[in-house]
C-alpha cells in the first residue's frame, strides 16, 4: 500500500487539522455524486477507497492504535449501478449498462415494444454513458414526465440540469464573473511584457 500521507498529499508532520482538510478536499473531488453513471466511475471509486483507507490509517496511528472511527460523513458508498426493479429484461439491461456493454444493452432495449418510464430512463442512461448528452437529456425528461414520482429518474435529470457543475478545485469556482475590474487592470499590466515574467 502507498504511504498514506502521500495519498492525501500532506507531509508526515502535518497537523491533524491539515490532514483532515486534505482528506475532505479529496473526498469532495472523488465523491460518488460527481461520477454517477460516468464511464470512469470505477476509477473514482478506487480513488475514494484509497483516500478513505489512508485517512483511517493515519487517524488510527495518531490515536495510538485505539480503534478510531472515521468521523466525517464521506463513507459515501458508491451506488454502483442501479438496483433492479420491474421486469427481468430491464434487470438484465441494467446489468449490461453497469458492465459497460452498451451495444448489447441498447439492442435488448430496442426489442422491448412497451415503452414506459423505465424504458426511457434506461435509454437515457445508455446515451449518457456514450456521451450523447442531448439524447440523454431528452430521454430522462421523458421518463420523469411519465413517472414524475420516481426519485431515481428525477435525480438523473437533476444531475444533467446542473450542466458543468460538480467538483471544481479551489479558485475555479465562480468563473469569470468573480473577476473585478481591479484584478483585470493588474493582469493587463503584467501581460504587457509579452509573457516574460
Amino acid at each position: 500500500m502507498r504511504d498514506p500521507y502521500s495519498v492525501l498529499g500532506v507531509s508526515q508532520n502535518a497537523s491533524d487539522e491539515e490532514v483532515k482538510k486534505a482528506y475532505r478536499e479529496l473526498a469532495r473531488k472523488y465523491h460518488p455524486d460527481n461520477y454517477q453513471n460516468n464511464p470512469l466511475a470505477d476509477l473514482a471509486e478506487e480513488k475514494m477507497k484509497e483516500i478513505n483507507e489512508a485517512y483511517d490509517t493515519i487517524t488510527k496511528q495518531r490515536a495510538g492504535g485505539g480503534g478510531y472511527q472515521r468521523s466525517s460523513g464521506y463513507g459515501g458508498s458508491y451506488q454502483q449501478g442501479y438496483s433492479a426493479s420491474g421486469s427481468s429484461s430491464y434487470a438484465q439491461i441494467r446489468n449490461l449498462i453497469n458492465a459497460g456493454d452498451l451495444a448489447t444493452a441498447e439492442q435488448l432495449l430496442f426489442e422491448i415494444n412497451q415503452r414506459d418510464g423505465e424504458w426511457y430512463f434506461l435509454s437515457g442512461s445508455i446515451a449518457y454513458r456514450k456521451g450523447w448528452m442531448d439524447e440523454a437529456m431528452q430521454n430522462y425528461s421523458r421518463a420523469v414526465q411519465m413517472e414524475p414520482n420516481n426519485m431515481e429518474y428525477r435525480q438523473a435529470l437533476a444531475i444533467m440540469q446542473r450542466g458543468a457543475g460538480g467538483y471544481r478545485p479551489a479558485g475555479y469556482g465562480g468563473g469569470m464573473d468573480s473577476l473585478d475590474c481591479c484584478t483585470t487592470m493588474l493582469c493587463l499590466n503584467c501581460l504587457c511584457g509579452g509573457g516574460h515574467c
Binding site: L40, M133, G163
Partner: peptide, 20 residues
Amino acid sequence: AALALTMDQSLGQMGAALQL
C-alpha cells in the same frame, strides 16, 4: 439555453475525467 447546457455537460465530463 439547451445548446449551452449540452455543451456545459461535456465540459463537466471533461473536468471529471481530468481529476482522475
